[in-house]
Amino acid sequence: MSDFYFGTDLFSELDRLQRQLSTFGGFPSSLRSSQLGTFPHINIGTTDDSVEIVAFAPGVDPAKLDISIDKGLLSISGERATRPQQMSEGTRQYAQERFEGPFRRIVELPQQADPDRVQARYVDGCLLISVGKREASKPRAIVVQ
């Protein structure tokens, strides 16, 4: 008889174990960050023509953002200014979820990304970065003769 009981659904137990492990730092991904609470949060997607990155960075001055690509790594850095104290003077703070201060995120781009074809814009607190793909890597139809 085993000392371990997994119930009838092994997959739900594995899911629970993964959630518990993520509490302690999680598994590293292709993003060069494994810390919980990393700022800014990002989404990465792809189209036939480009790699699309959205960095959620509300409260960041777009003029203070620095975006660079070197050796297949996209770097986003800047600083989120501190806000004036909004709590009353006698309040003891025991939690703060809003990040303030300097930040840097590094994203590994796929090999088909073309570092010479990058566009970036800041809209409504979101940094939208589009990295074009190399022509040789785009899908194309082959005509059968």
Rank of each mutant, 00 (worst) to 15 (best):
L128V: 11
D3V: 10
V60S: 07
K64H: 12
A55V: 07
Q112S: 12
Q35D: 11
R80W: 13
K64T: 12
S50L: 03
L74V: 03
G90A: 08
S130W: 08
S68M: 02
R134E: 02
R121P: 02
D61V: 12
V54H: 08
R83E: 11
D116Q: 03
R104W: 09
S12E: 09
L127F: 14
P102M: 01
R121T: 10
D70P: 00
A136K: 15
V118S: 09
V143Y: 11
V131Q: 10
T23W: 00
Y94I: 14
L65V: 05
F39Y: 13
G90M: 13
I106L: 15
T46R: 10
Q112C: 05
D48F: 12
I53N: 02
I142S: 13
Q86T: 15
M1V: 11
R92I: 06
L128P: 05
R98M: 03
D114E: 12
V118I: 04
G45Q: 01
R104V: 01
T47I: 02
P102R: 10
T47A: 01
R92F: 03
E108H: 13
T38M: 05
Y94M: 08
Q93E: 14
A57D: 02
F6S: 13
S33R: 02
I67T: 03
Q85I: 05
G37K: 00
I42A: 03
S2D: 05
I106V: 04
P102E: 08
V131R: 08
S22K: 02
I67D: 10
S2Q: 07
P102K: 14
E100T: 03
